[in-house]
Write a protein that binds this DNA or RNA. Sequence first.
DNA 1: GCTAGAGGTTGACGTAGCGTCAATGTCAAC
DNA 2: GTTGACATTGACGCTACGTCAACCTCTAGC
Lengths: 243, 243
Amino acid sequence: MDWPITDIARLAGTTSRTLRHYGDRGLLEPSRVGANGYRYYDERALTRLQRILLLRDLGLGLPAIAEIIDRQADDAVALRDHLTRLHQEKQRLDRQIASVEATIEKLEGGEQLMAEDMFSGFDHTEYKEEVEERWGADAYAKSDAWWTSMSADEQKAWKARVSQLAADWSDAAKRGIDPSGDEARALVERQVAWLGSIPGTPRSSDYYVGLGEMYVADGRFAKNYGGLAGATFVRDALAAYYR
Amino acid sequence: MDWPITDIARLAGTTSRTLRHYGDRGLLEPSRVGANGYRYYDERALTRLQRILLLRDLGLGLPAIAEIIDRQADDAVALRDHLTRLHQEKQRLDRQIASVEATIEKLEGGEQLMAEDMFSGFDHTEYKEEVEERWGADAYAKSDAWWTSMSADEQKAWKARVSQLAADWSDAAKRGIDPSGDEARALVERQVAWLGSIPGTPRSSDYYVGLGEMYVADGRFAKNYGGLAGATFVRDALAAYYR
DNA sequence: GCTAGAGGTTGACGTAGCGTCAATGTCAAC
DNA sequence: GTTGACATTGACGCTACGTCAACCTCTAGC
């Protein structure tokens, strides 16, 4: 007693293409194949199919399903294993959702987040108290959400870029090049590009020139750009660029 | 002022392969291509890359990213749109997690859930009160989680299979065939296969024979199998099969 | 016996976003 | 001149099938 492929597909709520695919993958063979090549499935095959579909609906991949069914692996163990992956996936999703929400708020807040972002690129936790003091605990939390939503590699890449830029500035300052020369202009462009990669940063020249003043005024920035001389050089280069 | 492909890749925390891929997709062209075919990227390209990677990390696909950047679509609108999808995905995950957890408990609970599953295949909500009365509110909640974790199509397919089986039983009973004949045996096999597709269902013949008695004893089952005569026929067929 | 129509078969391409060879050219350094 | 690092352009691989395409097969009606 068996039925042709479409009947079985209808009974199980799937398609004949899927059944053929399972046949190709060795996951579910027809119980009988006619002389004309037609596939027929019996009750046993249908039962097996139901199990396959059940496990598939739980999110398992075909190799994992084959493992469970053919090697008689323990369903509960395999499912618990799968559950762990589902939870991880969920956490990843949660982080991503938080990150997207934070970004949307940034975009809507406009300039409000600029200084906060300035800190984000550097050590980040180093300025926690000050950020909270100036812009509130909420601002720090948002910044933190954005930062922590990045993977370790991404954070590393980000920091690498920031420190590379800073090092180049410092080097240029030490070599005593012309702050209004071509090399300095190139550095300014990199600096602006970096700032521009952060959503919510204003694009006006006033902002960048003002930033240069801030680098000189605030010792912590000076430290990043090779001392006060470096910060001064950055300021001059920015000013020359936008003059 | 530009840099070769690997430098840009390192600066942005990605790979040269990815940059070439973006070039192929028209998402990010090199600012300059040497006579030897080497790709070079300038500050503008790097900025664009940073933006691409940022959006990518937020989970957007490459076409969506191109849409935002090239057509100057509104970032916030696109992201809110994306956020909706993320929430949907999360809900799907939550349902799947609940479903897997319910299944694990079923597998571990063994036979305890069998009668509950019997109801699941039918209308489900129709028996809510009785299920809660017999097996507790918790049991109903679990059953509900399993059932509602299925997509509408899956539920339809499931119900279709159940009613098809029931209709075939009813038809066979009306035609007055032999409950111990081949046709009846085939129906029994389908019935057993259906029950077997539910994890946690016992496989003993005693269980199936007892089930036949229950079909006769309980009017609601009789209704599904074409009246009392139908239920009686099912019971007899099951008994004959396992005798 | 013929024909239409429904349903079966085996390829083979498409999907998202690159990773990963493979075969080969280029450039800086020793 | 050679070596080693880095560049290029194909092209396959991965998940689980959907979707043609080209070509049989079976059933039913005339």
